[in-house]
């Protein structure tokens, strides 16, 4: 479903602020796979997700989604195939528009937006049915402005909007990091249910190792712009936080070693 070959991204090339965020990533995801993505700050996990989404173009390498080479496609064109939920709950929805208007916008993902009525009566039934699955009582508040909702409610709505047209790939970028733990768990439950129900190909970036271990069928770890760990199947099921931490510490030890070598 997703095939990334030699993906490289350098920010501010040829300047003192040059950052090599991705250094030649080769990565394949099969249809229906649920991959969790971890790594420390600046490891390249968000850069990777954004390069799949097309927020910026790669410096090198290629990305193909559902068999199509999309390396040069602009963000809005790729969006037809992608569902996205951001870390900031305010980013995924329009606060000044109503719940039904937001959902109508999402229903037209990747389709032509013409001069027909934006929110059609028959769509409202669909929206209500979808909102009921959240169990947040939003199905009775179709005309309410989204700005009135809490962060958790907005993020739940964004989940629905990202998945209602069944995207080829669902990209979740630390989508529970800005929520309180209880709301975050609720959103994770919704995520798991939706991804399983529609067998969505999913990439979920998270800071939380427990989440990365407990969710999904495959786990990858980024470090300094490369994927250093790729665990799936049985090994993933038996994985413990300690195992992951050990890998982290091993890496950090290596870092210290190289720094010492450089400066001594």
């Amino acid at each position: 479903m997703l095939k990334v070959e030699g993906a490289a991204k350098t920010f501010n090339p040829d300047s003192v602020n040059e950052v090599q965020a991705l250094r030649g990533i080769d990565f394949k995801v099969e249809a229906g796979e649920f991959v969790t993505v971890i790594g420390s700050n600046g490891a390249g996990k968000s850069t990777f997700l954004n390069s799949v989404a097309g927020t910026f173009m790669l410096s090198g390498g290629s990305i193909s989604i559902a068999g199509k080479d999309m390396t040069k496609w602009p963000e809005h064109k790729r969006a037809a195939n992608l569902g996205r939920v951001f870390q900031d709950p305010l980013l995924g929805t329009c606060g000044s528009l109503s719940i039904e208007q937001n959902m109508a916008l999402a229903l037209k993902r990747g389709k032509r937006r013409g001069l027909g009525l934006g929110v059609k009566a028959r769509d409202r039934k669909l929206f209500q049915a979808q909102l009921e699955t959240l169990g947040l009582g939003l199905e009775n508040r179709l005309a309410d402005k989204v700005g009135l909702l809490s962060g958790g409610q907005r993020q739940a709505l964004t989940m629905l909007m990202a998945t209602m047209t069944r995207p080829d790939i669902l990209l979740l970028d630390e989508h529970t990091a800005a929520l309180d733990p209880k709301t975050g768990r609720k959103i994770l439950d919704i995520t798991d249910a939706v991804v399983r129900r529609d067998s969505l190909t999913t990439l979920m970036v998270t800071h939380n190792m427990n989440q990365a271990i407990n969710m999904g069928d495959r786990l990858i770890m980024f470090h300094q712009g490369t994927i250093i760990l790729d665990i799936s199947g049985k090994e993933k099921k038996g994985l413990q936080v300690e195992d992951l931490l050990e890998r982290f510490y091993t890496l950090r030890g290596e870092d210290v070693a190289t720094d010492r070598m450089l400066f001594s």
Partner: peptide
């Protein structure tokens, strides 16, 4: 109130969101 107009309303409010929805 049209689909197109709705996308325009959202463009001013939340450009990231509307881009991620393919506009």
């Amino acid at each position: 109130k049209t689909s197109f107009g709705l996308a325009m309303l959202a463009t001013g409010d939340n450009p990231e969101m509307i881009t991620s929805l393919g506009v």
